[in-house]
Design a protein around this nucleic acid. Structure first.
Lengths: 209, 209
DNA sequence: GGATGTGAATGCATTCACAGCA
DNA sequence: TGCTGTGAATGCATTCACATCC
């Protein structure tokens, strides 16, 4: 679909989200423009890094002026694909899954939760935030009917791979996995793992220097 | 305290947590030893990377044999500082904070939740998993009394910096921040941010290639 | 004057490839 | 033979520094 742009450093893409977040803060304060050095220092980065990162994707700034906040926000959203609404589901309605289902921070970022799933019968047909919890057997059908592209997985580690397999075969394009294991998926499906305990380990290491 | 070992690549430290997780899986299956190439392929890495990462920290393997699973686990835990229990608190008892407080995955990894905090009076003195929720004004005293070293922050973005300041001045050594903003803390305090919406943005980007 | 965008230079991290040990 | 540990080589990412433009 989009032109293959394979010479973009992965770390640069990660920082795009940081830039966007900071820019949205500036927008709230009605700041019209921002320079690379200002943006950089608020994120503990260097000005050159900000300029280079943005330059990978196009010409966003004006020499002598800086970056226009509103239009850079639009540009970054377009790059990230969040200028349009992306239908997203949550599977696993344990404590974490329910918390994520109720989180109000996804929609403003372009991710609309449109379906919730759980294995446990006792959860089925309860609602969270107006969305009914469905049984797993309706997964494929719902993904197709609602054109759901991304999935947030908050299921136990035991069943995580099986759930991922179902999501993949139903045509999901990306998975955000909270279970503490490495998912095996085809190369054309994106996966990111968030292991909270592992993050604590990293903190533990850093805190012990 | 520990000798400054500053020539260790940061990415290598992050992978340590992956190795540990995989090794614990092997331990459950009573696998006695594992080679760098086996460990690597189960994590989609290269054998050389595994060997180099581990070699930064010492001699763990035996040529011709591989790495002894149980002793490598012990070694990695010692490096990460999780061979002893680390007292940890959660502040912010919204949906996410309560889910984290109830999560059973921290203790086996060496992180014991010993205190919970919230600003909202309606939450105070309720319990989660046997731990009473305390008001913020008891934060400093409790951190000192229970020798709490790490904090998980699940508070709204508005109050996040103020809460972080309190944690820092109470002597906390590391903060895991779920609020979508960049915390400002002194250099001797470790911080890691987990922004779930930002992770979805990354997925969105990857899924649109 | 003040800021961007970008080749060139530097600095890190990964991979190679092999000596050495079980 | 099989596998580790590690200098050397490669490949990426960051930083520098400056020509260019508002």
């Amino acid at each position: 679909m989009t032109q293959a742009q394979n010479d973009i450093p992965n770390p640069a893409v990660r920082r795009l989200s940081l830039y966007l977040r900071q820019l949205e803060l500036l927008q709230k304060r009605h700041v019209p423009t921002v320079s690379s050095s200002t943006l950089a220092s608020s994120l503990s980065l260097t000005d050159a890094q900000v300029r280079k990162d943005l330059a990978y994707f196009g010409q966003f700034g004006r020499p002598g002026v800086g970056y226009e906040v509103v239009s850079l926000i639009q540009g970054l959203k377009k790059i990230l694909g969040t200028d349009r609404v992306t239908h997203t589901l949550v599977v696993g309605m344990g404590n974490l899954g329910r918390a994520l289902a109720a989180y109000q921070g996804f929609a403003p970022k372009g991710f609309q939760l449109v379906a919730l799933f759980d294995m446990d019968k006792s959860m089925i047909s309860k609602s969270i935030d107006g969305i009914k919890i469905q049984p797993m057997r309706q997964l494929t059908q719902t993904i197709n009917r609602l054109e759901i592209r991304l999935a947030i997985m908050a299921v136990p580690a035991d069943s995580a791979q099986a759930v991922a397999d179902q999501l993949v075969s139903a045509g999901i394009r990306g998975i955000l996995n909270f279970a503490p294991l490495q998912l095996r998926v085809p190369a054309d499906v994106a996966v990111r793992g968030l292991d909270v305990a592992a993050e604590l380990e990293q903190l533990s290491f850093q805190a012990n220097r």
